[in-house]
Design a protein around this nucleic acid. Sequence first.
DNA 1: GCCAACGTTGGC
DNA 2: GCCAACGTTGGC
Length: 162
Amino acid sequence: MNHWLFKSEPDVFGIDHLAAKPKATEHWDGVRNYQARNFMRQMQVGDQAFFYHSNCDPPGIVGIVEVVRQAYPDHSAWNPDSKYFDPASTPDNPRWFMVDVRLVRKLPRLISLAELREHPALIDMPLVRRGNRLSVMPVPEQAWQLILAMAQGHDERFDKPL
DNA sequence: GCCAACGTTGGC
DNA sequence: GCCAACGTTGGC
């Protein structure tokens, strides 16, 4: 099982939008970046991911989702009326893919990007790397565990014996 | 609103 | 295949 992170703008599709969907489940369409697409194709049903709010104040991790359907063609690419329309993607030869995600829970509090940056243990996390613009990315296992602990109010930096 | 970082496009 | 121009992302 790998862990991931999905970015979304809360004004466009935030965690409360997902929560309001039937079964708190929605397809993650609109990814138009090859690297992000490739990550989605690696996802397995049952993989968990952070839900991240971008382009807002403050940006940060707000919840946990679970992949409930493996990657399948993103049909929004075939819809001329969609802003995600891409004539280069066809049903016979789909270029873009999506997964279905279900909201598992919101975190007890938002873990801001600034807070993530403060942790030395997280400096190699793709999310906090300079210039990163991927909307879908992996989360290293140690980072996953640490962030969950942070969300519960425990800061592992202060839990270690002297 | 600014702008750095990055991906994509297209001329050559 | 190179690379300049352009568009987008997203933090600040």
